[in-house]
Simulated assay, not measured.
Amino acid sequence: MAVLETIGVAFWVMLPAYVPNNAAVLAGGGRPIDGGRELNGRRLLGDGKTWRGTAAGIVAGLLLAGGLTMIAADVSGTLGFEVPTFTPWAALGLAGGAMLGDILASFLKRRTGRQRGAMFPGLDQLDFVVVSLPLTALLATDWFLTWFTLGVILVIVVLTPILHVGTNMIAYKLGLKNEPW
């Protein structure tokens, strides 16, 4: 794959994992997943991880994957290289893995004494990638092996923190987030 093709495929293939956390912020609120429970005097997850936000994030990722699949042929023709269509299991692995990664990161933050919204460099930017990729590989192995080449994975590891910081800064400036990370 050429460099621009690799970047294009990496961005396209990760969109169903990139969107869920943003959708969760917009649709969040409601009952926390941990129900207020604590472990060693600290909340398991905190008020920021809710059932409504998690469900909305997963649904948003699934819907986006479906929409991308519907336009993939036209986009491929326009770009001059093939972008993937998403199988249902691939879409679920990416969207569900993104939300699960964010939940697990929250759990780790609470265990290390960080409060809701506290910065945790590295984890904040890649938590959803670290879970969505293996989950997608498990649920849609052949699809994963076709699209997640070493080059694509490397682009994702470099591109994701840049996109994450940029979108969080925008959300902060728009008043959608309380902190810019």
Rank of each mutant, 00 (worst) to 15 (best):
A73W: 10
G77Y: 10
T78H: 10
T78A: 15
T78P: 01
T78I: 11
L79N: 13
G80E: 08
E82V: 13
E82M: 07
E82K: 06
V83E: 00
V83R: 02
V83N: 00
V83Y: 03
V83S: 07
V83L: 02
P84D: 12
P84R: 11
T85F: 01
F86M: 12
F86Y: 15
F86G: 11
F86D: 10
T87A: 11
P88M: 06
W89V: 08
W89F: 14
A90F: 01
A90Y: 03
L92W: 04
L92S: 03
L92V: 11
G93R: 02
L94K: 00
L94S: 02
A95N: 07
A95R: 01
G97T: 09
G97L: 05
G97A: 03
G97E: 07
G97P: 03
A98V: 06
A98T: 06
M99L: 12
M99C: 06
L100K: 01
L100I: 15
G101A: 07
D102P: 04
D102Y: 02
D102E: 05
I103A: 15
A105I: 06
A105S: 08
A105K: 10
A105P: 03
S106W: 02
S106R: 00
F107R: 08
F107E: 08
L108Q: 06
L108D: 00
L108W: 14
K109H: 09
K109F: 13
R110C: 07
R111K: 15
R111L: 13
T112V: 10
T112N: 13
T112L: 13
T112C: 13
R114Q: 14
R114I: 11
R114S: 09
R114F: 12
Q115L: 15
R116L: 12
G117W: 07
A118I: 04
A118L: 07
M119S: 15
M119T: 14
P121Y: 12
P121H: 12
P121R: 08
G122W: 08
G122C: 03
G122F: 09
L123F: 10
Q125T: 09
Q125S: 06
L126M: 11
L126D: 10
D127E: 01
D127A: 03
V129Q: 08
V129E: 12
V129I: 15
V130C: 09
V130N: 05
